[in-house]
């Protein structure tokens, strides 16, 4: 973290300063939403790796759809769930550029499951940043593919039931069995330590692409206080205590 940029001598003494990968514009996420933290981590890694001018990012449909207003590099929109296919179309024609997608649980693990699996299986040389907060935030809090059993949402008012709704999908474990998946890791943004570990996962995943190693995905357990109908601190505690039990943190695969 120290000495974030060596290019500019005037901030030699900097310890923690806002990344140049972020625009000045403040974002519109709800108080306590984890997207802001993940946006910042991505921007910091982009800046530290010196790839800002090469990045073409793909934003999802969901709360992060406005990511192009917050990141200070090229970003395109994609239809719901299709960012891995859009990223494929970009990376194949411009292999020298750096291409990543930023997707939520609904976008990636429900409507976009096919695109995810096949991009991973082709070992597409792209990186996926997957923000898992177990709920559809943008549409006001419906059940997501990663919603825990018993968890109450707008569409599971009495809790998620196996017989009706099936099980929460463990995306990292699912993707890790594919030979094309090179780096699969799950972090969280619930404590400063977890934030730093998650940043190291993102950095490793980005480096993999730079080294042409193929498909990488980093899942990030995150907070959606509005969608989960909890206070920001309560949400953070819940993610830390309940979510991590079902979605264990760590590097799932690194080959």
């Amino acid at each position: 973290m120290e000495k974030i940029s060596s290019e500019n001598p005037s901030i030699e003494k900097t310890k923690f300063i806002k990344s140049k990968g972020l625009k000045d514009k403040p974002h519109n996420y709800c108080p306590g939403c984890g997207h802001g933290i993940v946006h910042r981590l991505v921007a910091e890694v982009v800046e530290e790796l010196g790839i800002r001018e090469k990045v073409i990012a793909v934003a999802p449909v969901g709360c992060a759809v406005f990511a192009y207003d917050y990141w200070n590099f090229d970003v395109t929109e994609a239809p719901h769930g299709r960012p891995p296919a859009v990223a494929t179309g970009i990376k194949r024609i411009l292999p020298e550029n750096f291409v990543f997608t930023y997707q939520g649980d609904g976008d990636l693990a429900a409507i976009g499951a096919a695109e995810l699996i096949h991009a991973a299986n082709r070992s597409e040389n792209i990186t996926i940043i997957f923000v898992n907060n177990t709920v559809y935030g943008m549409t006001s809090g419906q059940m997501a593919p990663t919603t825990l059993l018993g968890q109450k949402t707008l569409t599971t008012p009495h809790g998620r039931e196996v017989l009706r709704d099936g099980y929460p999908i463990k995306v990292c474990e699912l993707i890790s069995v594919l030979d094309g998946a090179r780096y699969v890791a799950r972090g969280s943004v619930t404590t400063p330590k977890n934030v730093l570990t998650t940043k190291s996962y993102i950095k490793k995943a980005f480096l993999n692409q730079i080294e042409n190693k193929g498909f990488s995905i980093v899942e990030i357990l995150s907070m959606c206080p509005a969608g989960l109908d909890m206070e920001p601190l309560e949400t953070m505690e819940w993610v830390d205590k309940e979510l991590i039990k079902y979605f264990p943190l760590g590097v799932v695969k690194d080959v």
Partner: peptide
């Protein structure tokens, strides 16, 4: 670039990806 997509849905979105460049 030639790529057999996993579906027509993916194919048109790969086209979209190349088109943005």
């Amino acid at each position: 670039v030639f790529l057999q997509a996993e579906s027509e849905v993916a194919a048109i979105n790969m086209v979209l990806g190349t088109a943005v460049t």
